[in-house]
Design a protein around this nucleic acid. Structure first.
Length: 344
DNA sequence: TAACCGTGGAC
DNA sequence: TGTCCAAGGTT
């Protein structure tokens, strides 16, 4: 491996081909001394965890507009932030985002720390995000390894060990090739390459600046990174209750941890491994009413599939009543629409 | 360590 | 319809 040629090839590609992302300071501007807002970088990195750019981008814009600084976010109400996160998924990120903002406001004078170690100690910043913020926001040397980097490195070195056991080896190799003269650009270049050229399927090797250095190209790059087989996804069953009072819908606040923790949701039964009959669901309904079956909703979570029986009734109960269903996680939004007869 | 934790788009 | 997967973190 010719490290000098490898590094200059990737950075030259990035200088020419860097994508225009809303939170990005492009390499030319960065070279001219422009520095990104660390708060904006941190927010983007958290939102992008296991989330695509098109999905995260509008949330990032909305958060920055509504809470322009860490102090603004730290002062926000929990319910407001959770509602603004609704639909983005992995809601522990939003809970940790608030915890982190309040820690920064209270213990760091309102400014994100600029070292990996202190960033890593904050809620919601793991190895990847702490390294990414250190590199991108502060241009600190750091080994930034996300799924893109793992794939690029696994291919360049034709790593035969399967993920996730190979993570330490991939990180070690990523650290060895990292260019520490332009940490922020290097991190983004590796990730951009993985996102646009060295893709999981049908990688565009003919356009890749690293082909001369890539061991996997002697065979089929798509075989890398090798992966351990996954567990199969079980199915669970529940019933949800769409109780309306005029144009309002009854919602409940979910417990502050676990699945959809801290979010508003529809009242629901336990989610078990056996289907619910209509009679069973009526028997445990949150309030006595003329419950009718409105339909069924299928939803896929990461580690199980959910089949929901949707019951609907008009009535009253002790609940949070709202007309704004955009505060709901997607699974409940789907059920609420079925319950209200908007069958689409 | 492995399980848990969302969502929507691509194929 | 099924499968994979995306700038992962926490427990």
């Amino acid at each position: 491996m010719d490290l000098v040629a490898f590094r200059s090839a990737l950075l030259a590609w990035y200088d020419a081909e860097a994508r225009d992302l809303p939170w990005r300071v492009r390499p030319a501007a960065r070279g001219a001394g422009v520095r990104p807002d660390p708060y904006a970088v941190w927010l983007s990195e958290v939102m992008l965890q296991q989330t695509t750019v098109p999905h995260a981008a509008p949330y990032w814009q909305a958060f920055l507009q509504r809470w322009p600084t860490v102090a603004d976010l730290a002062a926000a109400e929990d319910a407001e932030v959770m509602a603004a996160w609704a639909g983005l998924g992995y809601y522990a990120r939003a809970r940790n985002l608030l915890r982190c903002a309040r820690a920064v406001a209270g213990e760091h004078g309102g400014a994100l720390p600029d070292s990996y170690d202190r960033l890593r100690a904050l809620p919601g910043l793991g190895d990847y995000t702490a390294a990414a913020v250190a590199a991108i926001a502060f241009d600190r040397p750091a080994t930034v390894v996300d799924g893109n980097v793992e794939r690029v490195i696994a291919r360049v070195f034709a790593v035969e060990a399967p993920l996730p056991a190979s993570k330490p080896e991939l990180k070690r190799l990523a650290g060895e090739v990292t260019d520490i003269t332009r940490p922020g650009d290097w991190a983004q270049a590796m990730m951009d390459l993985g996102a646009t050229i060295c893709t999981p399927r049908a990688p565009k090797c003919l356009l890749c600046p690293l082909t001369a250095h890539c061991a996997a190209r002697r065979g089929d790059p798509e075989l890398y990174p090798r992966k351990a087989p996954k567990r199969e996804r079980p199915r669970r069953y529940g019933a949800v209750y769409v109780l309306t009072r005029g144009g309002e819908t009854a919602l409940v606040r979910r417990p502050g941890h676990g699945l959809l923790g801290g979010m508003l949701g529809l009242p629901t039964t336990e989610w078990r491994d056996r289907a619910w009959s209509l009679d069973e669901a009526v028997a445990v309904a949150p309030t006595a009413a003329d419950w009718r079956q409105a339909g069924r909703v299928e939803h896929l979570f990461t580690h199980f599939a959910l089949s929901l029986l949707v019951l609907r009734a008009e009535g009253d109960a002790d609940a949070a009543w709202t007309r704004d269903l955009s505060v709901l996680p997607s699974v409940f939004l789907k059920a609420a629409r079925v319950g209200q007869g908007a069958l689409l």
